[in-house]
Design a binder for these strands. Structure first.
Lengths: 232, 232
DNA sequence: GTCTGAAATTTGGTATACCAAAACAGGTTG
DNA sequence: CAACCTGTTTTGGTATACCAAATTTCAGAC
């Protein structure tokens, strides 16, 4: 038996697959064969099946009846739907964080903004992006609402690749840091209205970036037929 | 192999357990022994394990390391957290439904309100409650945002028992129908502001009812020690 | 070259066995 | 009486086998 804190084999596999998907090593549309992948990793079908289930719940893998599951190909509507919900969750996070965040929480969030400013030019884009994510996650945690933090995390994860692609393309880090600073200031000032407005502004830009990148990918997919190849 | 539309054995088991939990047949704190329950139902551990996983994800069952899972005992904070998120999701639902609902959608929602009015006194409380739930679900569906509808459904499910208990105790059906009608009128008028206000009002009452019932259950649990008995 | 039917392959789901770790219970000792 | 130790029981996780259904492939006929 394994302790709760120690991840199971299935969780390990899920993490590895998730990383491959989010980094693009496993492309949208690519099939994930339960038996083949299990053999490749030297594990049995049971944890592999469990891992695939975990990622299917997260929206990263799409189960198909009687066919191998495939890496989900986020369409525009799907991404937009998730972005809309994420914005509502982030607003609620900010609102509750204004009320409930401790001074330590706010210091922690400020530390993330500082870190982003300081390492603006020297960091790998992926590292910077992870820090960006941690900013948003810290606010959700500071809301002191676990159900919200968990659901927020789920949506962040589902939108991870779209957001990552958007962040990679635009190189608008200064704007991101500026907008994060606005949010932080609203939290510090315990100003719910300002926090919501700053979140709205920040995520409106995000939605724009995501829309562009998804349109690009759709165009690329259409002109190339099926660049990732049909599954199977 | 089973078709997608046809539920698996695991899904059947999950549905049965869910029903037992939500109806109180399986009380909060009661343990669910994988092997025993599987034997009782004449199935193997695999679908039972899968079913427990499903319900754990829904928050109805609480997994414990090296111990039998137990029926989740919702504490006050937990329920309140979920209610807060649900309110945000419902507001977003109403807002998007105002924009995106088809006339058919609105007719469907109106039909539910009519049905509730007509069968106000003659229906079993549980039936009336299910119809109440379908009202909210129909709005989420009318938002045309699948991610929102799915997450909304998840939160509705997690709060089901608390809401059901609240609904059973208060017998405030007339008020519920009135508030539903306000929401429906706001949807019909395509008035997002009115819809949000009506949702706020409706769910504020809900939160009040839930708070009362959870407090009652907490008091009952404290005075009786562990009325449901320790698991194992 | 196309179509159809049969065979082969792939697949998800389930049953069962095994293992190691954690928890529990009972007895002994101080 | 409390603490500790040991043996037993319970438990979750994983490996493997099997089955039935769906899909794919191949061969033969037209």
């Amino acid at each position: 038996m394994i302790r709760m804190a120690e991840p199971t084999l299935a969780e390990h596999i899920a993490n590895e697959l998730r990383r491959d998907i989010l980094r693009g090593k496993l492309a949208p549309g690519e099939s994930i064969k339960e038996r083949d992948n299990a053999a490749e990793m030297g594990v049995s079908r049971t944890p592999m099946r469990e891992a695939i289930r975990i990622l299917a719940k997260e929206g990263l893998i799409q189960l198909r009846p009687s066919r191998s599951p495939i890496v989900a190909r986020p369409n525009f509507k799907n991404v937009e739907d998730h972005a809309q919900v994420l914005i509502a969750l982030e607003k609620l996070s900010a609102e509750l964080a204004v009320k409930n965040a401790s001074d330590e929480d706010i210091s922690h969030i400020a530390g993330i903004v500082d870190h982003m400013s300081e390492h603006f030019d020297t960091s790998d884009p992926l590292d910077m992006f992870e820090i960006d994510m941690s900013f948003h996650t810290a606010i959700a945690d500071a809301s002191k609402n676990k159900a919200l933090a968990e659901t927020h995390r789920t949506f962040l994860q589902r939108l991870w690749r779209a957001r990552y692609l958007a962040a990679s393309q635009r190189r608008n880090r200064q704007r991101v840091v500026n907008e994060h600073t606005l949010i932080l200031n609203a939290l510090r000032g315990r100003d719910a209205k300002a926090a919501r407005a700053a979140i709205d502004n920040h995520l409106w830009h995000l939605a724009e970036d995501i829309r562009e990148v998804i349109e690009k990918e759709s165009a690329a997919n259409n002109s190339a037929g099926t660049p990732t190849g049909d599954p199977q």
